[in-house]
Design a protein around this nucleic acid. Structure first.
Lengths: 250, 250
DNA sequence: TACCTAACCAATTTAGAATTGGTTATATTT
DNA sequence: AAATATAACCAATTCTAAATTGGTTAGGTA
């Protein structure tokens, strides 16, 4: 695969040498064996290498780009392969568009199903860690500590699905949840009551997972989240001002 | 609230002037009324403004930082409020860790529930657009066109939940799905068969949504995704080489 | 008409200087 | 001796200006 292409092209001179640069460019790419996502020489160099003009080279490049064989961008260059997609999901942008209600509905949609899968997939080590969280939550001396173990429990359940993609989506959801927080201050109490509703609810979830009862696990998580939602609305609605905002509790 | 703080501090000189700078800094912050997330003057300036040394100022700043009233970072500066969380979810990183099986399991977990909510929330305009997608999918002259309308249908269903957060999570999932693609080439056929399984399955989903039958809508989506999964495994397992890889079909 | 050359534009990258919090060593003060 | 002030340095970050690069237009040439 040498330069014979340009010689063959003599037959094309009758139709105005259209595609001469294109043929040369194709030959160049075949010969250079550039790996995927690698950059071609800049147009100004490449056109000299191929002994053509920049305008002609660009026509040829346009064809290959339309074929999806390469992509270009001002300032960046010309690259082999297909244009890379946006690799970042902007959590800040999501936070601007959403609201606490959406966060709650999304959790209510996701987490019961996640818990169902966790009941099937959780390792015994993970179940042990869940139990440990339950204990530490009861021992917590402050809401701050309580929330830390609460978050940890929910994340272990997510990890128990053995699905890194699901885990990443839940982490995104949680990042939004924290950012979209209604308010920051916790209600007047310094730490959770001993009979805080979450204690028994969390225990029910972990027990169902331990029993490998998928249906019961999903239901228990749903009950828990609905209970959290109710508490959220109560503390919002009860005439309390900014001094008694909702919490981030999971 | 002027400089009287430093005069009051005479009583503290007995305990070594500890907190003198801290008191001054607190007064400065109260007086300056800096809005949230705004930057303080650099330490080198601020310590002169407060008439103290940089080391003393830094001790005071450390206290306020521990109290959560401000946060600092080399090269950035010192800021009022709490440290911002990572605002970006790296889709590329997720793609590296996951695999097509996880993608399928995640879709199977998410999309039936999403469809259930869509059946409840979809506007009639959205349902009309879904129907339009069904028609255009049948009319598609290439897999490329078919997939475009297929993707569009699934996204309208997601939009129909009226939940921008859920939509963002599904968009992230789809970005990963495209990036994690097994392969790029479609099976030998140029366009979908007229009796392609997806046609009736998609129709069943949209019909259930139109009937506001949440249970049936969720079930129909589950059937569809399981069918897609089966096809995926078939084209993978049937001894076909890289020439017959799986598709990105939704 | 087809092609080449040159110049300019805007997006991007690159390199280096300047800035900034973090740290350490050495006076200076009390 | 203890506490504080001063100075110098480090590393992360930002800022700035120049260089690079694809995209575009104008004018000349065969």
């Amino acid at each position: 695969m040498t330069l014979s292409a340009s010689e063959h092209a003599t037959s094309r001179q009758t139709i105005g040498e259209h595609g001469g640069a294109l043929t040369q460019l194709r030959a160049y790419l075949a010969q250079s064996q550039l790996p995927l996502d690698s950059r071609l020489p800049p147009e100004r160099e490449l056109c000299q290498t191929l002994g053509t003009s920049r305008a002609e080279l660009r026509k040829a490049l346009a064809v290959l780009e339309a074929e999806g064989q390469l992509w270009r961008h001002v300032g960046k260059g010309t690259f082999i392969g297909s244009r890379p997609i946006d690799t970042m999901a902007d959590i800040a942008a999501i936070t601007r568009r959403t609201n606490p209600t959406e966060v709650m509905r999304t959790r209510l949609l996701l987490e019961p199903e996640v818990t169902r899968v966790a009941a099937l997939m959780a390792t015994s080590a993970q179940i042990a860690e869940m139990r440990s969280c339950l204990v530490r939550m009861k021992q917590a001396q402050s809401w701050r500590q309580y929330e830390a173990w609460d978050n940890r429990l929910h994340r272990i359940i997510a990890e128990a699905t053995q699905n890194s993609l699901m885990l990443a989506l839940l982490d995104t959801l949680n990042a939004v949840r924290r950012a979209v927080a209604w308010g920051r201050l916790r209600a007047n109490k310094v730490k959770p009551d001993a009979d805080h509703h979450s204690f028994t609810e969390h225990a029910a979830i972990v027990e169902a997972i331990e029993d490998r009862d998928m249906e019961r696990a999903a239901a228990a998580m749903r009950v828990h989240l609905e209970s959290v939602e109710k508490n959220l609305l109560k503390s919002r609605g009860s005439g309390a001002g900014p001094k008694q905002p909702a919490t981030n509790e999971a």
